[in-house]
Nucleic acid binder design. Structure first.
Length: 549
RNA sequence: GGCCCGUUGGUGAAGUGGUUGAACACACAUGCCUUUCACGCAUGCAUUCACGAGUUCAAAUCUCGUACGGGUCACCA
């Protein structure tokens, strides 16, 4: 029985050949430098920050070179597929504006690009054509090993201190005749298709990774499964070969955990005589756990999930900047020289990427975010806050929209100046900074005045100030001077230097006096500029609040 | 255990044989400024590049060894 007859028995309906597909998906017509990258997640859960790192590097590489960034849904493991995962991946990509040039969505049937299908489960017959070709060439074979047989092989190998895997004499079905294979298939036995590896473990080959430089690996000699018996879909390795070749991917960006599969991919590409894409194996994002360091985990670390940043309301700009800093540490220096440039203008350099894993610094994110938010106009902050609270705090959203102009004014306190305040690292922090500006929220408040003041002191300060000095229409200088006059009249020190030198000579200082007013009006002992707050609150509201003291 | 990768401060890191007193940014600390807080400014923060040996006039930078850390060895991606 010939290989061809066996191949026809396994794939009777496959008539297209590898050459047919080569013709169907020709080389892309792009300029010489243009790079083709892909984000290829498997829909098995919510997006991890490591995946996001990969996606953003893919995006920058493609956009910076005038190339193509496409999305491929790697859904060959249907048992692990999680409902809604694809939608969420799409959502994240859209949220951060990393929109792929080519994509395909199963549920909405939206699709773009001529190298599809972009969903692996819809590419079954393409894979089968490639596998059929291998069987005809004698480079792949059906394997009928049961789980028990494989466990036994592993056990024996462990015992004999040999390498684990189905290779050489352990590849039991590599040597059976086509007749025997056909008979087993006709008897309905389950089988997987394995590569008939021609590699030699004692031979090494050189491999150049764009991020890690030149490396040496032993050749692969394992008869890896290329098609699963369960759903007849290919394994990752084989799908990678077929898809990235046919979709004409030039750069594969993936996590470092894939490094050890390089020998397999090397052999696969060599077997077909295809040119390998370039690889960028990116570092893992780590997390400090006590004094141990480990891979950041979606289960243990909330910040490992991309939902974290959205729920907290970090601006997309800040998240991208922080991630880019991890991708290339010279990014920050570049940003300094190009403050207004889009991040895709940055020329990403795989070589400059860290080889060991990196801890993701949330403090750094906060810093970037604070700077960014502080540079925005109050109206822009309002819009971000509006979008954010619509999703995460409906009550607050209603309030800020009811008093929109007022809210913008509140957000504008000490903003449009050379050195604006940097109060907020995320949108979720804003409410905590301005809630007291709304009567709706200013209920059941507690006042914690400085314990050095008696109730009489407090009453005296408030009565004196609001009866004799307070005038809503005063300008800032007048207001400031009146505060001083009042404090002096009541026996408080108005010169802080002097007060610090001899605190015992005075009842207290102007700072403490003004904080009594601050607390009376806002209930907080820290706030932005008190003059601005009194002005925005307005006389009626201020006097009403004083009554409650 | 086999194979592969890595190890510069609290964090991200620059640096690939001699202007390095080991950049820069974040964090932290102190001080100044200041009517609070924040901002801003100033200063401090690795006598040393995991450890040991070697090469060299000269090593964080080259070589070897040790230790430690990580990845991977599925019909999961």
């Amino acid at each position: 029985m010939t290989n061809k007859e066996l191949a026809d028995l396994i794939f009777p309906d496959i008539t297209k050949t590898v050459a047919d597909y080569e013709a169907l998906y020709p080389e892309r017509d792009l300029s010489e430098n243009a790079k083709v990258t892909r984000y290829a997640p498997s829909p098995t859960g919510f997006m991890h920050i490591g995946n996001f790192l990969a996606a953003i590097i893919d995006y920058v590489i493609a956009k910076n070179s005038g190339g193509v960034f496409f999305l491929r849904n790697e859904d060959t493991d249907q048992a692990r597929e999680v409902e809604g995962a694809v939608e969420y991946i799409r959502h994240v990509l859209e949220h951060y504006k990393l929109n792929p040039d080519e994509y395909e969505y199963k549920d909405t049937l939206e699709q773009k690009g001529s190298y599809g299908p972009y969903i692996q489960s819809k590419r079954k017959e393409i894979y089968h054509a490639f596998i059929k070709h291998l069987i005809i060439e004698g480079k792949a074979y059906p394997c009928f090993m049961t789980q028990e047989e494989m466990d036994a092989a592993r056990e024996a190998q462990t015992k004999d201190k040999r390498r684990i895997g189905i290779y050489g004499k352990y590849a039991k079905y590599r040597y059976i005749s086509n007749e025997e294979a056909a008979e087993r298939i006709n008897n309905g036995e389950k089988y997987t298709i394995r590569l008939r590896s021609e590699g030699d473990f004692n031979r090494k080959f050189k491999f150049n990774d764009l991020a890690n430089g030149e490396m040496e690996f032993p050749e692969n000699d394992i008869d890896i499964p290329i098609m699963k018996s369960s759903n007849l879909l290919p394994t990752y390795h084989f799908a990678h070969l077929v898809d990235d070749h046919l979709m004409r991917t030039t750069h594969v960006v993936r996590g470092q955990e894939w490094m050890s599969s390089v020998p397999i991919h090397y052999e696969l590409f060599k077997t077909f005589g295809f040119k390998m894409p370039k690889y960028v194996h990116i570092p893992l994002i780590l997390k400090k756990d006590g004094d141990k360091v480990r891979k950041i985990s979606k289960r243990l670390d909330p910040e490992a999930r991309m939902t974290y940043y959205e729920e907290k309301g970090y601006p997309i700009y800040a998240v991208i900047e922080a991630i880019m800093t991890i991708a290339n540490s010279n990014y920050e220096a570049w940003r300094e020289g190009h403050p207004d440039a889009d991040f895709t203008e940055f020329e990403f350099s795989p070589k400059k990427m860290s080889k060991s894993g990196a801890l993701f610094d949330l403090d750094k994110l906060d810093n970037i975010s604070k700077n960014y938010l502080s540079r925005l106009k109050a109206g822009e902050v309002f819009d971000l806050l509006d979008t954010y609270t619509k999703e995460y705090d409906k009550d607050f959203n209603e309030i800020i929209n009811k008093y929109k102009e007022y809210t913008i004014n509140v957000l504008n306190i000490e903003r449009e100046q050379k050195k604006p305040r940097k109060d907020y690292a995320s949108l979720s922090e804003i409410k905590n900074g301005i809630w007291y500006m709304y009567n709706e929220l200013f209920t059941n408040v507690e006042y914690n005045f400085d314990t050095k003041f008696s109730n009489e002191d407090i009453k005296e300060i408030l009565n004196t100030y609001f009866n004799d000095y307070y005038n809503e229409s005063d300008d800032k200088d007048t207001w400031f001077n009146k505060m001083k006059e009042m404090a002096e009249k009541l026996g408080y020190c108005t010169n802080m230097k002097e007060y610090k030198e001899n605190p015992d000579n005075y009842k207290g200082s102007i700072a403490e006096v003004s904080n009594v007013i601050r607390i009376a009006v806002t209930s907080k002992d820290q706030s932005p500029d008190l003059y601005e707050i009194l002005k925005l609150l307005g006389k009626e509201r201020v006097l009403n609040r004083i009554k409650n003291i």
